[in-house]
Design a protein around this nucleic acid. Sequence first.
DNA 1: AACTCGGGGCA
DNA 2: TGCCCAGAGTT
Length: 223
Amino acid sequence: MLTKQQIRCCLDVMADMFPNAHCELVHRNPFELLIAVVLSAQCTDALVNKVTKHLFEKYRTPHDYIAVPLEELEQDIRSIGLYRNKAKNIQKLCAMLIEEYNGEVPRDRDELMKLPGVGRKTANVVVSVAFGVPAIAVDTHVERVSKRLGFCRWDASVLEVEQTLMKTIPKEEWSITHHRMIFFGRYHCKAQAPQCPVCPLLHLCREGKKRMRKRENKRARAD
DNA sequence: AACTCGGGGCA
DNA sequence: TGCCCAGAGTT
């Protein structure tokens, strides 16, 4: 396990590697962001952006989404996968927005999590990106990076990962930090092909050092 | 804690 | 062409 000091050091390196880290979802307001993040569950932001381009021209308000048959909305988002669940959730979510929140996206994380299709990760992204509330959205990238480097135990829950990061990072940097970690995880510390040999964090990384040792042993046996 | 839902993308 | 990727909800 890394010390707080070491974790901050890792995060500083990520900041240097990805100075332009940001939310990759295309949106123009909190409502569009909410829809985009709900759609992004279990698929990549790039894929969602392909769909939302057309979607946000056709549907502009919560009313627009519920004015259409479920099957039509399903067809409009078919290419992203899990589209039946997502279409159903979005119609219910829009109905709730109208009935309970005056058609506005709530600014409170716990209120957001009452909406169908909105879990902890989605709610954290929405409050931090749309409303500037400090939050750390733990997706698979943030979780994988935290565990490989040794920010937390391997068996830590998503909530424990979030709490570890919150305890380590000053509040003002929570939001930008989670974007940096996502970039680091997506483009460098990838799930299948981590770039350990060229990683500037290798000297601190629990998993990286283990992988490099394995590599060495393999080479030694081959000789 | 484990399972399910479903496509696109890449090897 | 088959494996890998990405969260929320349910039991």
